[in-house]
Design a protein around this nucleic acid. Structure first.
Length: 233
DNA sequence: GCGACAG
DNA sequence: ATCTTGTCGC
């Protein structure tokens, strides 16, 4: 899909896509999804997966897995070109779309406001949140070593582009930013409510686990419903 | 030119 | 991202 794009073309395309970004609160959230990619080093095969869980219960309900071929290389600032095409393919397998999707990477916390979460959000016309494990753009003070302590991230212009969030004591923070069709504050709130006992919030953590099992042949492609566990009685 | 650099 | 052993801390 983007295999023939030069980085110069890609940057111009990101600037155009960014003009379509919209930030508004989500009315009601009952389901949240996590999306991620896994691949073997030096391979063009991408193993994409999207998991859907209840919100705020964080109970896994279903998940979709699919492969996609791409030769677009990884380059800081252009992650969407490598991952979004594969994610859009798995996205089609989901019958009932979730209320919001969390991506492993940034939203508008990006030099051209078009991180992988914003990129996917625009193309899928879907509310998205970016949750990165390391900082790509901007600067911030270190949040206190207290659970859910935050620090604003600003760029050299002074624009507030996201938050560093300490999801677990003694662990490095994660970086949250709005992707599309959501606000910065709501993105932060939703991620806080999606954290359990790990540094990585449940949507992205489970997506990462399943996509890795998929790559290792432990799971097959397609849409899967998870048998409801009877917590009752 | 120098340093930074999601996954 | 993936590969990969030991090691530090709760």
């Amino acid at each position: 899909m983007y295999d023939h794009y030069s980085f110069e073309d890609a940057a111009a395309y990101q600037i155009e896509l960014a003009k379509q970004l919209k930030f508004q609160p989500i009315n009601k959230i009952e389901t949240i999804a996590g999306a991620d990619i896994s691949f073997n080093k030096n391979s063009t095969t991408m193993y994409a997966g999207i998991v859907i869980l209840t919100y705020p219960g964080m109970v896994l309900k279903s998940f979709a897995l699919e492969t996609y071929e791409t030769s677009f290389p990884y380059k800081a600032g252009f992650l969407g070109f490598k991952e979004v095409p594969a994610l859009l393919k798995v996205w089609e397998l989901i019958p009932n779309k979730p209320d919001v999707v969390v991506l492993d990477g940034n939203g508008i916390l990006h030099p051209r406001r078009m991180g992988v979460a914003s990129h996917f959000g625009i193309l899928a016309n879907q509310a998205t949140i970016g949750c990165a494990k390391s900082l790509l753009h901007g600067q911030n003070h270190q949040p206190q070593n207290v659970k859910f302590s935050t620090a604003e991230i600003k760029n050299n212009t002074g624009e507030m582009l996201g938050f560093a969030l300490r999801t677990k004591i003694n662990c490095a923070p994660v970086y949250i930013s709005a992707g599309h069709l959501i606000t910065q504050e709501e993105s932060l709130d939703i991620i806080k409510k999606s954290v359990r006992n790990y540094r990585i919030p449940e949507p992205t953590r489970l997506a990462h686990n399943l996509v890795n099992d998929f790559r290792l042949g432990k799971l097959k492609s397609g849409f899967h419903e998870v048998a409801p566990s009877l917590t009752l009685f």
